[in-house]
Amino acid sequence: MRRFLASALVLSSALPAFAAESKGGFPPFNATTFAGQLFWLALTFGTLYLLMSRVALPRVGAILSEREATIESSLAQASKAQAAAEAEAQGLEQALAKAKANAQAIAQEARTKSAREIDAKRSAVEKDLAAKMVAAEASINETKAKAMANVEDIAKDAVSAIVEQLAGKAPTAAAVTKAINAARGE
């Protein structure tokens, strides 16, 4: 499109010039300049080639390969460090697991020991309480017997009083005792 436009414009602009038959020449096809251009091109391009091949490109190539080597060694170091870190992490996990197992064993031991102690204490206390209970029952029985004996006396007195009230005469102790026993025997 660009070239189309350019050539159309060149034609339109060149037309008046050529109508007058005055050729301006076309510099790129002007052969007298060729030798000079070739000479200077050879000089400049040769200089550029020498400079590039001797100086610039080896340097840049060295920089690039140095950077690649540095990156590679850094990466190798990093992967080595990572492997070491992983190994350590594994060792740590193992130690942790061992410690946990130890802790559980210790806890188990402590539990059994305290259970045994508690048992021993409990049986001692139970024995104690049982003995106390026996003693208490004995004293209760004693008290009950005493109270029962007292009740008998009170009953005798009460019966005598009642009979005396009712019959106007105090019974004999033997008759009262017989009556109470007969009532108790029923």
Binding site: T32, G36, Q37, W40, T44, L51, M52, A56, L57, V60
Partner: peptide
């Protein structure tokens, strides 16, 4: 005719710029 022309001048400039950068 090996004159230093405008073409030669700009060739020299091109080479100088490239050499400077590199």
């Amino acid at each position: 005719d090996m004159s230093f022309t405008n073409s030669a001048l700009w060739m020299v400039i091109a080479v100088s710029v490239t050499t400077f950068v590199m």
